[in-house]
Design a protein around this nucleic acid. Sequence first.
RNA 1: GUGGCUGUAGCUCAAUUGGUUAGAGCGUCUCUCUGUGGAAGAGAAGGUUGUGGGUUCAAGUCCCAUCAGCCACCCCA
Length: 436
Amino acid sequence: MNNKLGTQPIKGFRDFVPSDWKVQQYIFDTWRKVCESYGYEEYNGPVLEYATIYEKSGDDLGTTGKELYKFTDQGGRELALRPEMTPTVGRMIAEYEKIYSKPIRWFSIAQFFRAEKPQKGRGREFFQLNVDIFGSESVYSDIEIISLAVDMMYMFGATDEMFDLRLNNRYFAYFYFKEVLGLESREDQSTLLKLIDRFPKKGKDWLGEEIRIAKLDVNFNDLEKYLNLNLENVLDFLKVSLNNDSLYIENKEDIELFYKMLSIINETKLKKVCIYDATIARGLDYYTGTVFEVFDRNPKNNRAILGGGRYDDLLSMYREKSIPAIGFGWGDMPTRVFLEGWNLLDNRLSKVQTYYFPIISTDNYVDMLDIAKDLRTDGHIVVMGTRERSVGDALRIANKKGYDFVVIYGEEEKNNHVFKLKNMKSGKENMVDIDG
RNA sequence: GUGGCUGUAGCUCAAUUGGUUAGAGCGUCUCUCUGUGGAAGAGAAGGUUGUGGGUUCAAGUCCCAUCAGCCACCCCA
């Protein structure tokens, strides 16, 4: 009999009531502030793109299309709601690259859609910050992006104990697999790295079993050595290898860049939160060099809250010659879980000073409109009453709503051509002349 | 997408083995305290127990489906 519609939003989508949206705004404002302080400019792009740009961006066509919201429009085009920004911004850069001098520093805060199974910190609709720098192969761009990500964490009030930034480089991993583990083929190296990517969740027994199944010829002690590498170990290992002229190193330039990056980090304050982590692989699709993730160190939420890396070849899907790029994406949902988990939201949400202007007497309403208009012109936020109230009631309401000031304008004030401004926190009252 | 757990008022939770008209606190609204607040008192609204079906004399309670949330897997762009 009930033919009314349901009131819940559809699975994985969210309603934002004002108190929720306030948190969102706080997160967006913080992201924006730090990006702008680094000289990045904000952009945006279409919510819909041709589905093919997402299917082409990964190595692994079979699995990537699965979580895409895809449909055919009235013109027969295969379209998709954007699940990420990188292909869009890549397309934009490929299209407009000539207008801008390099390097191009861009960021965006936009909404994305993925047909995933919703969980805490993961929905079908979410906002994501994307920060990228295009047209620079320099190691200093890698450092800049990493430093920007870390600064944002600090800007949110995070301390060194709450997070770390985990770095890796797939070419380094491949090189290590070859030199130390004796894995010669790129295919085996790639298989192993994919397995290691899942190792933290699955554990040692699982990894051993999978290696047996994949028939990888790997000494488990050597592998353990790889898994336990830290920043100093990697630097030592690379220093020796890179100085050995008789040694052939595939992707030597990329590995040299990685070495340089780690040695710089090792000498800066970034060292406090940056670590080498052999298990970071980032899905392996379009990343070409540095990969990194920022991890929440809260034991209840041990997960990546942002991730990114270098993708120097991605733009070759749009043009002959690619444009080097590095950047990261940072979702709003894991961020909220992080901030709530460490209690970093209390007292940080913006609070605007608000004037409450109750109707003490409806006879004065016309005058009140003029007074309110003047106050708003002066930049104040004025909330007017909607019905006649006694002064006592008005103050109670102001309390409950958290208004900061109450404008009192009754008979007395009208006769003296003033209004009374009461500060709710201090209780102090001032008479203000109404001039014009 | 697969598997598991969960769903009672806006929120936190009650409701005997299936048994009257599903309750409480907080919150919300109204009133009193008659131009000075954070309080107190009085009262009210708010639920077809997520939704739909089934079993039964009788369903919040049992069964099925569905929707949504959480957890694990998958995926993580």
